[in-house]
Every structure is written in C-alpha cells, then in structure tokens.
C-alpha cells in the first residue's frame, strides 16, 4: 500500500475535540462532518484540504472522547491516511473499523514535513518520504493491512453480517 499527497502537519496529543468540535456532533448530520474537520485546531482547514491529502502528527493522535465522528470527518474531508508517532487506542480502533489507515512512525514525522508539501507514505518499504528526509514506519499488523485494503472491519461485516469480522 502506498499513498502520495499533500501533507498537513499537527503536533502531539491532537484530541477529538480538535478533529471535530463537540458542538457540531448533534447539530449537523453525519454526512456533513467533513465541513468541520480539524476546525478545533485550524478553522481554515476545510477550505485548504483536498481529496487524497495526508495528515502528519506527533504522539497520541486522536486522544480524548470516543466519538467516531472524528474518523468520519477526516474521511469526508478527503484524508487518505494519517501518519503519527502514536495513536490513542479508541481512535485507532474507530479508524480500523471505518477503513482510515493510521500508520505509526518510528520517529516524530513532524520533524521532516512542512505544511502543504507533498509526501509519500510507502507501506511496502515502510518509509515516509518528504523533501527534506525520511522517517521509518512501523510494520502495521496484518489484520490492520487487511482491514484497510478492504475498507475497514465495518465493510467486512457488511458483506457478511452473520460472521464477526474477527472470527
């Protein structure tokens, strides 16, 4: 698996209130969340982001509330994958379920990426490449690769609801 796109850089501990502020959760429909993606961190983000863009962040990305709308908002905004030094566990699971690839970097990837520049996330070579350098990526578990390829555990369950996707 490999993604190439413009990168948007965020810091450590980006929480779900920054990804989708709570005040939108029960005021907008589930299909309009993309218009508010990342507005807790950058109010202009929905205007800047395009289909296929990549988020790059530091440690503990997606901490805070369990809201799955955080993943939906990023997907609707067009984000192809998120590369971070680490992810909060509920966000990681939500992303796995909805098929948003969340790739862990072995070193802080924000050190080598500038906002808006083109980057390559290469899961075959396990590397994130930017203009100024490279950061090695962690090998994702095989079940995660499979889920991302198939569009998430939710999609697997949709095809065969009788059988839990982990069985």
């Amino acid at each position: 698996m490999r993604w190439e796109g413009r990168a948007w850089v965020f810091g450590d501990n980006v929480d779900t209130d920054q990804i989708i502020p709570g005040r939108y959760l029960r005021r907008v429909s589930y299909d309009e969340l993309g218009r508010y993606a990342m507005t807790g961190a950058d109010p202009e983000f929905p205007e800047k982001v395009r289909e296929g863009d990549i988020l790059v962040a530091g440690r503990n990305f997606g901490c805070g509330s369990s809201r799955e709308q955080a993943v939906m908002a990023l997907q609707q905004a067009g984000i192809a994958c998120v590369v971070a030094e680490s992810f909060a566990r509920i966000f990681y699971r939500n992303a796995l379920n909805r098929g948003l690839p969340t790739v862990e970097a072995r070193e802080d990837p924000t050190e080598i990426v500038e906002d808006g520049e083109r980057v390559v996330v290469d899961l075959d070579e396990l590397v994130l490449r930017s203009e100024s350098g490279e950061v090695p990526l962690r090998e994702p578990p095989e079940f995660a690769r499979r889920a991302w390829r198939e569009g998430g555990l939710l999609e697997l369950a949709r095809r065969n609801p009788e059988r839990p996707p982990w069985r």
Binding site: S66, R67, I90, F91, N97, L153, A157
Partner: peptide
C-alpha cells in the same frame, strides 16, 4: 469504544 465497535 467508538460507535462501530459498540454496534458490533
């Protein structure tokens, strides 16, 4: 957990 895990 998030909503999909709870649906599961």
């Amino acid at each position: 957990f998030g909503g999909t895990d709870m649906a599961f």
